[in-house]
Amino acid sequence: MQSFTAEDRALLRTPSSPPDSVIPHIFRVPSGDSGRPMGAAYGRPFARPAAIDGCAHTRCWEPEPLRAPVLDGDEAAPNLGGGTLFALLRPGASSAIARYSPQLADERWRRIRPFTQDAVAVVAPACAYLAERLMVVVTGHVDWIVNVCGYPMKADVVFHPVMIRRSVSRDDVAWSDKWRRDCRSLLLRISEVVVPTAGPLEFAALNGQSVTIPYTHLELQLLESWARGQSTARRRRSASVLLALSAGAGLDAWEVQHLRRHDIHVTGSGIVVDVAGAAPRQSVVTERWEQLLIDGFRDVNDGDLVFGSADRTTTFNMVTAFIRNTDRGNEPNPLPTRMRATWIAEHLAARTPADLIMQAAGTSKAEHLAAALVHVPELHTSEDRRRVLAETRGQRTR
């Protein structure tokens, strides 16, 4: 794991800001923007560090997504529903899928069950959700398309992007915006494999707030009040470390929930975090969030997890459920993705060398970092984009 020099730690801990008169103002994208288009870049498999024995998480089932055989002739979609793909999964995965029993009439479920199971077999190794949740999403979609709307049970029909757009935008169900986004993401992952000939399709925004838009300074203050104002010590600890590590060190939700106390090193020159997982690295907590983090794990033992129950053994993503059950007021939704985007935007605004940001963020896509300049209007120029791309190659300007 590559370590930072003392100078680099100082840059990451205390981003030097320009004079007040030219401090870039982080802004919001108007709510009318379209959603992300369907395409190969939309559903890439999550990286996974290694398989964990006995784990029911999809990351531990298969090293790579299944690639279904494409039929010749006019039919461009693989033959889902025969159990051929379902049978290719390892026993733990296939057993978890087979055990699922939806709240559907027996006749309706019998009709779509093999087809649904094969569809989940395609996407299970390529995403971070448990099999039960995948089955819930895919079963609901297939049932509505086939049993309710009467379309044929063919992969290139059921999982065509147009059908997915219709399904996730239904107005006869009381789904939250987040649930619709999750469904859309999972179904599009299947679509990329089983309907490879489908062209890109624009999706309307499911709400007016992008999950990648940085928080404002006021919103961060409100989120700190949310973290410190929880009703129990455990909730205060989990909320504090989630906010401090995501908004202060650029960690994602999966990394936060697997972090242990001995991974966090409090030194005289700042707090350094050893991050394991898909992108092992070190990150440095910005000074603004140091005290919140220290207050959060003050009573945590050295080997214990800092988020959630200290001795839990579950591996699924529990951050969303935690946030949903926290004590909430009038603050903005606490979203780890937006917290991480805020950390990136603040470092870009302070002109922190881009190679340092990438190293601490655990990302290898220089273009993504340059694209984040859109959230710093004064630096959203072709010249600054070229500067950021050059700095990702080690050609620092400061």
Rank of each mutant, 00 (worst) to 15 (best):
L85E: 05
R108Q: 05
N79Q: 10
W61C: 04
T116R: 02
T116H: 09
A77L: 05
W61H: 08
P49E: 13
A87G: 06
L89D: 03
R90C: 06
C55L: 10
W61L: 13
P102H: 00
A56K: 13
A68M: 06
A105Q: 12
A68F: 02
F86K: 04
A121C: 06
E62I: 02
R110C: 03
L104I: 09
P102W: 04
I97G: 04
R108G: 01
A96V: 14
V122H: 00
P69E: 15
A96H: 05
A50Q: 09
L71I: 08
V120N: 03
S101N: 07
P102C: 02
G92M: 05
L89C: 06
A76Y: 11
L66A: 11
G81Y: 07
A50C: 11
D74N: 15
E107N: 08
S94Y: 09
V122T: 02
L104D: 06
Y100K: 04
R59V: 13
G92E: 04
P63L: 15
E75L: 12
N79V: 06
P69L: 10
A96P: 09
R90I: 10
G81A: 12
S94F: 08
P65R: 14
S95Y: 06
A50D: 11
A119V: 00
V70A: 01
P65Y: 13
R67I: 13
T84A: 08
W109K: 02
R113H: 07
Q117G: 07
A119E: 00
R108V: 00
V122F: 00
G54L: 05
P65A: 10
P114E: 05
A51I: 12
C60P: 01
D106N: 03
A98D: 05
R108N: 04
V120D: 00
A87H: 09
A56L: 14
W61N: 00
P63H: 13
T58M: 10
R99V: 09
A50M: 15
P91L: 02
L66I: 13
H57K: 12
V120F: 00
W109H: 07
V122P: 00
S94C: 15
Q117L: 15
R90E: 08
C55D: 12
S101V: 04
T116N: 07
A87V: 06
A87T: 07
L89T: 01
G83Q: 09
G73P: 05
V122C: 01
V120M: 03
A51F: 11
A56N: 11
Q117C: 12
A50F: 08
A51P: 10
V122I: 04
N79R: 15
G73R: 07
A87C: 08
R67F: 13
L85M: 09
N79E: 11
E64W: 13
P91I: 01
G83R: 08
D74T: 14
A87L: 07
E64A: 12
L66V: 12
R111N: 07
G54N: 03
Q103R: 08
A77F: 02
Q117K: 10
C60E: 02
R110N: 00
F86N: 01
L71P: 03
L88V: 08
N79L: 12
I52C: 08
R108E: 02
D72G: 14
D72L: 15
L104M: 09
